[in-house]
Each structure stands twice: as structure tokens, then as C-alpha cells.
Design a protein around this nucleic acid. Structure first.
Length: 570
RNA sequence: UGGGGUGUAGCCAAGUGGUAAGGCAACGGGUUUUGGUCCCGUGAUUCGGAGGUUCAAAUCCUCCCACCCCAGCCA
């Protein structure tokens, strides 16, 4: 991470940390990113990752990566691997500080025993349904469990037998003894250990009782010396409970929980459940489909870690739930890639152009600049010959107003090559344009004329004899509604709003030969089109390029407006 | 009709008693061998609403409205 990327935008969490340092309550900042290994990370998680690791980096503290693996029913090793990969890819380093809540199972068990001895926890033999009924409702107080006043000895014995596996799942639980009349449901004698006869991905069959989130999370934080435990807002109601455990147990440190708002992104979904449906029901091609907002999907799409970090920085950290426009994410990518992506020429919909006054078998090499924003990226050779391909959309027989590309009798520039003038349009029997005849001005070699003559348009092109075949995969928003989740609340299944044109596969594309042999994953700009990324499995022709994001297109905007089209939304 | 949280421009977001930052988007203009980039300019008499305190309020007080979260032995 560089300083350029890390702006120091003020936000309430940073303010709290500043105050804690100022009042000498804090010597070193310690944060943590605590994913449950039960799914893949997405852009929403990136916000939390960047916040936690970013703050630790900024204040010379440290950030732990801790897997919150207290529920063996939905956790798997594959998820821990992908999460580690994604966090590292984003550019963060947890150093030696990789932890698992499951590392603390024995300690957590001892803490529970301590609570029983303090008469602050009891084994409850109510059934799950009974527990629910006894809990009361939002507006009515709960009822105390008939098992609430078991003796310490009996509780100790029962809890030990729970651990030994003497009971069936669901028959007993350990509960904290707090207040069944609390208006905060989390304080109505919450369950802190439950029986699960399941194999855990790390502890195997060593345990058959597992701590709940509320019990494990705060104590894990305390064990690790976390100073600021940042979580999303839905845990705000849990904070009194978090503090209750910290207060009553002999923990080595006293972490502070601070909640911030989750982010939503337009035209996509970010909940595990919905993302899972997209994959399970085949609407996308897996978790790393380039249309997915998962980190693996964004990576395959061509997003850079720097772009995602900048995006997270841009959106800020607050307490009000946001619906961030996709245009912000796209801006962050363009902004990053503009400086680092090498430029190439690629024609999506080829239209043959014959340079009639160019030598029949002539051939020469022109020079192209790899990145106008960064001279150190050098130049490359561009083979030129009598027959080339240009973009079909760069020619209009009857050019509309403000169109300054090629048209009959009009002169334009071929980027880094020559000025050409269209002298003839060749069509087939159906009236389809099959090729263009143009003349070139030998004096304009390189792209400028010694007489100072100006042209309005510059076109990208490839030499027909030298170009490579390619396939472009053009991605668009996954949904047709900015907030498919909101629509869902009106009773419509969000999959109804999946964009049928979110993927357009275009074959028959032609790209310049310098692209031969580039590595998969390489990010580049096809000039005048957008930023692309060579797809992972693309070794031979046709080369497959995923479009990460299109370049801004002022002409498309003008054309749409002239036609009275609707404005583009984000 | 319980509790917790949030409301500042189309979106994100600073600001916490002294007269509304910044970014994205949009719209003008300049530069340009990418209709890209870059540069310049344009937007809130007003901060969910209504009252009140004050010389002074987005900031303090009162009432109201809207939205989000909570009744898993999920996290």
C-alpha cells in the first residue's frame, strides 16, 4: 500500500482511536478481521478488511486475521483457504497473527465454568421451541427458565457431561443468567454453549459442545488483546452482552466494540444467501464469475487490489447504511488502470479497409506508445500493411452531426499510422458494407501531417495479415434494478431482475500481434474501448479477453442524447 | 404498540454553536495522435419536518415523520 492510495479521510472510528491515543488509554492499536469460513469474500467484506488492516497500518499497530469458526455445521477448510488468498491479494499482511476461534475452545470452556461458579450461567434443559417461547416477544418480557436455579454443583456436573457427549443435540444448553425482562432480547439469558455432534474442520471430534458467537467473539478479542473490535451495525444490540462477558470474566484485556454500517452496491447483491442462489441456480458461472461482486469474481474481471482499496477509501465509514453507485467502483478501477495498464489496439467488430495506394505486398513497422501516462513503459512495434481492420462503428455512410470518424470522402487518422481518406464503399448483395477503399497520405506516417493539417477523428486498427483472433466477453450489470433487494421486499424474487444481457460474448475480434504470449490475468487497455483482462484459461487463439470496465464514452452519450434516449443511470 | 440505529445535493460523505469540505455522477469550456486522461468552471439561502433556546443552530432542547436492525441452540 502506498501513501498515494491512503487518504486520511476523517471518520468516527478514526476519531475514537485518536481520542483513545490522546487520553493515553491506548498504546498500540490492535484490530482484527474475523470472517466465518462459510463462504467467499465479497466487496462488502473488502470494506471491513480495508478498515481494519488500513487503520492498523496507519497507526503502526497490527491487525489479526481470525477465523470465527464456532459452528462446524457450515464451516469448511476451502473457505479458509480462499479467504486467506483474497485478503493477501488485497495487499494486506497479518504476519504471525493468524488465529482461529477454535484455538480458544478449551479456554472458552473454562470461562464458562467460571461463569457457572459465579452463578452467572446455568444448564437449561428446555427444548429449542420452549426456549423460544420463554424468550417472550419484542413487546413482552420473557419468562425465566424452570432450570434457572439449579445449584452450582448440578450445573458444573451437567456442563461437564455435556462436554463428555452424554446428551443429545438440542437437549441441553448452557445459558448466561442475565435478565429475562430486558428490552434487549440478547440479554434474555442467551445461550452460550450448545451441543453439536459434528466434526469440526480443525478440532475434528474433540468437541461436541461449541460456544456461540456472542460468547466466543468478545472473549477471543480479549485473548488476543484486540483494542478496537470493529463490526457491522446489526451487532449494536449485542454490545451490552459483549461488555457483560468482558466485565464478569478474568480476561487479559478489555476490547471495545464499535459498529459501522454495511455497504450495498447498485445493480448487484451482497448477501451470502443471495450470492449463493446465483451460483446454485446457475445464473452465473460460479463464485468467481466476472459478474460476481466476490473478490475472486472481481479479480477475474480485471479489478486490481489498488482499485478496491481506493474504492473503500472513497466510500468512507459511517453509521448509515448506504447504497453506493457502481460508477464509484468503476471510477476507482479506471483511475488505477489508467496509470498502470499498457495500451493495445483491438477491433471488436472488424470492417476491412483496403489502402488502395499502398504497395501491394508492402509492409512496415510503426511505433506505438505503451502508456501515454507513463513513458517508462516504452513503445512497441505495430505492423502495418495494405489491408487492415477498423471498427465497423467507426464508419458511417451517412454520418450524423458531431460524428467525426470515417465517412465517404472524409479523412481521419489511424492511430500511430497514417491519415486515410475513404474513397469507396463496397457492399454485398444485401447492401451490407463488406469493405472500404481508402487512400493514405504517405507524408502522414506516424499520425501527423507535416503541413499541419488536422483531422477530427483517430481510429484504432490492426493489420489484417498480422492480427490475432480474439473473443471479447463484455460484461454489464448483473441486475436490471439498482436495488434488487428492495424490490424483493415488495414480494418479488430478486432473480426476476437478473439482467439477461449481463454477458455478451463477441467472437471474431482482431487484436494486434504484440499480444501474443501475454500472461493470463494481464490487465490492459484496448484503446478507445476499455480495460480488459486476459481470461485465466486463455492460452491460444482465439485469445479471450474479459472487459473489466469500458472507457468513458462521450460520443455514446452525445449520440444517445441526439436520439432522445434516456440518460444513463448508475 | 419494546429496544437499538440512521436521516446533510441524484449517490457516498466531512462538519459536533460562528454562517455548508471533498469524491462519484451530471452539465459547460480548454488541452489532446484514445470522443480516454488531464485542467478549468457550474450545484444545498440550507442540513428528514415543525416548534423552541441563542447575537448566532446542520450542530443544543421538544415534539413529529421516514427508513434499517433485533424474538437462531447462525455469525
Amino acid at each position: 500500500m502506498t501513501d498515494r492510495e491512503h487518504s486520511m479521510q476523517p471518520h468516527f472510528i478514526r476519531n475514537i482511536i485518536e481520542e483513545d491515543f490522546a487520553s493515553n488509554q491506548l498504546r498500540q492499536l490492535v484490530t482484527r478481521f474475523p470472517p466465518e469460513p462459510n463462504g467467499y469474500l465479497h466487496i462488502g467484506h473488502a470494506k471491513s478488511i480495508c478498515l481494519n488492516f488500513g487503520l492498523a497500518w496507519e497507526y503502526r499497530g497490527r491487525c489479526h486475521l481470525r477465523f470465527d469458526d464456532t459452528n462446524p455445521l457450515n464451516e469448511e477448510e476451502v473457505y479458509v483457504d480462499s479467504i486467506r488468498e483474497d485478503v493477501a491479494w488485497l495487499g494486506f499482511d497479518w504476519g504471525e497473527h493468524l488465529y482461529y476461534a477454535s484455538d480458544y475452545f478449551e479456554q472458552l470452556y473454562q470461562y464458562a465454568v467460571e461463569l457457572i461458579k459465579q452463578d452467572r450461567a446455568f444448564v437449561c434443559s428446555l427444548t429449542p421451541e420452549e426456549i423460544r417461547q420463554y424468550r417472550g416477544t419484542l413487546t413482552e418480557a420473557g419468562t425465566e427458565s424452570p432450570y434457572r436455579n439449579r445449584s452450582t454443583e448440578e450445573n458444573l456436573d451437567l456442563f461437564q457431561r455435556m462436554r463428555r457427549g452424554e446428551f443429545a443435540e438440542g437437549s441441553q444448553v448452557l445459558r448466561a443468567k442475565i435478565d429475562m425482562g430486558s428490552s434487549n432480547l440478547n440479554m434474555r439469558d442467551p445461550v452460550i454453549f450448545r451441543i453439536l455432534h459434528a466434526t469440526h474442520h480443525r478440532t475434528g471430534d474433540a468437541w461436541c459442545i461449541y460456544p456461540t458467537y456472542d460468547f466466543a467473539h468478545c472473549l477471543s478479542d480479549a485473548e488476543e488483546g484486540i483494542t478496537h473490535s470493529l463490526c457491522s451495525q446489526e451487532f449494536e444490540d449485542h454490545r451490552p452482552l459483549y461488555d457483560w462477558f468482558i466485565e464478569h470474566l478474568p480476561v487479559p484485556s478489555r476490547p471495545k466494540q464499535i459498529e459501522f454500517a454495511r455497504m450495498n452496491l447498485t445493480y448487484t447483491v451482497l448477501s451470502k444467501r443471495r450470492l449463493n442462489r446465483l451460483v446454485e441456480e446457475g445464473y452465473v458461472d460460479g463464485w468467481d464469475d466476472p459478474r460476481m461482486p466476490t473478490l475472486s469474481g472481481l479479480r477475474r474481471r480485471g479489478y486490481t487490489p489498488g482499485a478496491i482499496r481506493n474504492f473503500c477509501d472513497m466510500i468512507g465509514v459511517g453509521k448509515s447504511e448506504s447504497l453506493v453507485q457502481m460508477s464509484m467502483l468503476e471510477h476507482a478501477l479506471r483511475d488505477d488502470l489508467n496509470y498502470r495498464a499498457p495500451r493495445f489496439m483491438g477491433v471488436q467488430d472488424p470492417l476491412k479497409v483496403v489502402i488502395v495506394n499502398y504497395p501491394q505486398d508492402g509492409e512496415e513497422e510503426l511505433e506505438g506508445i505503451n502508456n501515454p501516462e507513463d513513458e517508462s513503459m516504452g513503445t512497441r512495434g505495430l505492423p502495418f500493411s495494405r489491408e487492415i481492420y477498423i471498427e465497423r462503428d467507426d464508419f458511417r455512410e451517412d454520418p450524423p452531426k458531431k460524428y467525426f470518424r470515417l465517412a465517404p470522402g472524409r479523412e481521419v487518422r489511424l492511430r500511430y499510422a497514417y491519415f486515410i481518406t475513404c474513397v469507396d464503399v463496397v457492399k454485398d448483395d444485401n447492401g451490407e458494407i463488406t469493405e472500404l477503399h481508402c487512400t493514405y497520405d504517405p507524408e502522414s506516417r506516424g499520425g501527423s501531417s507535416p503541413d499541419g493539417r488536422k483531422v477530427k477523428g483517430t481510429l484504432h486498427w490492426v493489420s489484417a495479415r498480422h492480427c490475432l483472433d480474439a473473443e471479447f466477453r463484455l460484461y454489464d450489470r448483473l441486475f436490471t434494478k439498482a436495488d434488487p433487494t428492495r424490490e424483493e421486499k415488495k414480494g418479488v424474487d430478486f432473480v426476476q431482475y437478473i439482467n439477461p444481457d449481463s454477458l455478451r460474448v463477441v467472437s471474431g475480434c482482431k487484436v494486434e500481434p504484440a499480444l501474443r504470449g501475454i500472461d493470463s490475468g494481464t490487465r490492459l487497455q484496448f484503446e478507445r474501448k476499455g480495460y480488459f483482462c486476459l481470461n485465466g484459461d486463455s492460452r491460444h487463439e482465439p485469445l479471450v479477453f474479459n472487459m473489466a470496465v469500458a472507457l468513458k464514452d462521450t460520443w455514446a452519450k452525445i449520440e444517445k442524447r441526439e436520439q432522445g434516449g434516456a440518460s444513463v443511470s448508475s
